[in-house]
Nucleic acid binder design. Sequence first.
DNA 1: AAAGGGGTCAACCGCCATAGG
DNA 2: ACCTATGGCGGTTGACCCCTT
Length: 275
Amino acid sequence: MVRAPCCEKMGLKKGPWTPDEDQVLISYIQRNGHGNWRALPKQAGLLRCGKSCRLRWINYLRPDIKRGNFNREEEETIIKLHEMLGNRWSAIAARLPGRTDNEIKNVWHTHLKKRLKQNQVTPATTTTNNKSFNLDSSEPTIPRLLESSVHAPMSPQPSSSEISSVTDASTSTGIGEANNIEIKGEDMEYSMESFPLIDESFWSDNPGFLPDEYSSDSSGLSCFNVDTQTQYSVAPMADNVQGWPSDGVSHVDNGMDFWYDLFIRAGGAEELPAF
DNA sequence: AAAGGGGTCAACCGCCATAGG
DNA sequence: ACCTATGGCGGTTGACCCCTT
């Protein structure tokens, strides 16, 4: 299909927006909305293409945009969601009110990716998994589980084309080993090391921590809700991870729900955040 | 003080999905 | 069923700024 020529071939302006252009766009959208981006610049009297107008509005001029630096909680949320969703920035942005996909993408590439990489080269040390919970937090909306994704120690990872078999906790030499698992989707890789470390001792050392309606499997890396007959991974997961969960249905949200469930039952938030 | 390098971020590009004709 | 227009998305670019040498 031959595409319509864009801005530069139509004598339209490119590059940074001027305050005047911003004002024209804002007042036009406030008066008329933005039903048709393609037609908008002409109707508004802007020498821009519709795409450029849309981008400017969505990424910068929208009234509900939250300006300023990302706080720690937002960054941790991004890291966690990126573990789940990969580079689906718009999906991540949808869960961060006031933040745009472009902004999140920039933060990821400029800050977070670097930070995670630094953590990867940190020599592996044994840490306890659930100890990373900070239940003293006065801000209950995001599980402190996320802390562990930032500070999780990294060690060489085994390769696997899909979720690998799980080292049986009874033969495992360490917590980290039991969780040193890599999941590969179609175009993404997920390291279980980025999640709180969990092995059999996690369940046994935390009587009452695992909700009654869940029963963990032998690996300790998935559990089963006996009420809903649903299997959950212990880590939030992507919907394109092959062969997981067992029913083949996307359980992205289930994964998150499960974490939140654990978090709440560990004394965290009273209510689920709006995910 | 000037140059160079790296970081940041707004904006663009090109592809894809989808609605509508 | 096919074609086209449009919106939306992720990857990339380049201008600007700041820090270091």
